[in-house]
Amino acid sequence: MKFIKYIFLGILFGITLTKAEVVSWFRIYEMFKFQSFHMYGVIGTAVVLGIIITQIIKRTKMKAISGDPIVIPPKQFSIPRYLIGGTIFGLGWAMTGACPGPMFILLGNGVFVIIVAIASGILGTYVYGRIKRKLPH
């Protein structure tokens, strides 16, 4: 039962991204064409509120529900890993019109062909795992 809250959070997230049209291929195309504020508004609002929330967590040394402090592990900085990896993801994002979350939300929306992109995404992650050591990080 301790897991049920995650299912509810996922439901809230799935409803929200569908209702705000974030899962729409059309919205992602429009975003990369800079033809509407909508997607920038969604991400911008989340980031501004996220910054405030994260600062409150850190400054008040907020504890998680378990009583342990909330830790946000810092990401080790490097340029190649994030720039190359990010660019590869961006190419796929603009092509499929979906990042990983929306792929699954689209499945719930009855867009079943997206299962092919999901399977291919799992394969892509697997291939990354196999050749990881040969890539610049």
Partner: peptide
Amino acid sequence: MFVVGGFLVGFGTRYAGGCTSGHAI
């Protein structure tokens, strides 16, 4: 679109260590 696009999403997100939720948000 679906096979290559999906592959790039899966490969790129793991290479970059996150996607829109992990990095952008």
